[in-house]
Amino acid sequence: MAGIAVIGANGTIGSAVVAEAAARGHEVLAVVRDPDRYRGDAAAVERGDVLDPVNVARVAAGRDVLVSAVGGGDGPGHLALIEPAARALVEGLRALGGEAPRLIAVGGAGGLETAPGRRVWDTPGLPEAVLQIMHAHGAALDYYRTVADIRWTVLSPAAEIGPGPRTGHYRTGLEQLLVDSAGRSHISVPDYAVALVDEIEQPEHIGERFTCCAL
């Protein structure tokens, strides 16, 4: 059983990660902006600020893994958090020295390769708001790749992620966008959470980004 803190535990992906981890018997701390509104599956809940390294260090202390489910899907205010949050997370974990937990961050699909020299964000016709989220996640990943003293992992979803069943089955890859047997790049939120918690339990991607897709 691992001690896991999930920042952004009230969000769509964060709540799914909490539910999956709790169902497997892990001890989960939900870190949210308003604990009074939390109704999830975590064993404990605390107020948190992902942009405050001191707060990051406090909620991460004594944990085995810190999950950051900070994304840009909730509007411009959240979009502006993505890359600065990556820096604050690393700074907070550095303050814990050798006792710092592993960091797993929810990433984006925009930087995945669709062909040599082309990425998802090069697809014609993408809305500007979507492009901004993609590039913000790309900037966060670029920053993580400069970090050598923290055990980090970024998990990028398939091109489409949304509601759906928990099948417990998925494919993984590294830098290329994955597609299923019908040529569609998608994964349900519950199966994304399965992939993330599997990575917690069986680490295979420390210091790198990987991606997951439905079969």
Rank of each mutant, 00 (worst) to 15 (best):
E113T: 15
G71D: 08
A69D: 01
D49I: 02
A60H: 05
G40H: 00
E175W: 09
Q176I: 02
P53F: 13
A86Y: 02
R118F: 08
E27A: 06
T153G: 04
D198V: 08
G48W: 08
R33D: 03
G71A: 12
L177H: 02
L126V: 04
I13F: 14
A22Y: 07
Q132L: 15
G125W: 07
R94Q: 08
I200H: 00
H205K: 13
A85F: 00
G207V: 12
S181H: 11
A86H: 01
A95I: 02
G72Q: 04
E46W: 04
R87P: 02
E199N: 07
A44C: 01
A182R: 08
R171S: 12
P190G: 09
D74E: 13
V56L: 00
G107D: 04
A148F: 03
F210P: 06
S188P: 05
S15V: 10
A193P: 05
L51K: 05
R118L: 11
G48A: 07
R102V: 10
G8I: 03
M134G: 04
G173I: 08
V17F: 02
L89T: 06
P84R: 05
G40C: 02
D64P: 05
N55K: 10
T123H: 05
F210A: 04
R171E: 08
A129T: 13
C212P: 01
G97H: 08
Y144V: 11
Y38V: 01
G14H: 13
V56E: 00
D191T: 08
C212T: 14
G125Y: 09
R33M: 04
L103W: 00
E128C: 12
T167C: 12
Y144Q: 11
G73A: 12
G162C: 14
A195M: 10
I206N: 01
V90F: 04
L215C: 10
G71S: 13
L112A: 10
R58G: 03
V32I: 06
V45M: 09
T153A: 05
P76G: 11
A148S: 14
D36S: 10
I187T: 07
R94M: 03
L103V: 09
G75F: 08
R209D: 03
G75P: 02
P101D: 04
V194I: 13
D52S: 12
A44Y: 03
S185E: 06
A57V: 01
D198K: 04
Y143T: 13
D142S: 14
A115K: 10
T12Y: 07
Y143M: 03
D64C: 08
S185N: 02
Y144K: 06
D49W: 07
S68D: 00
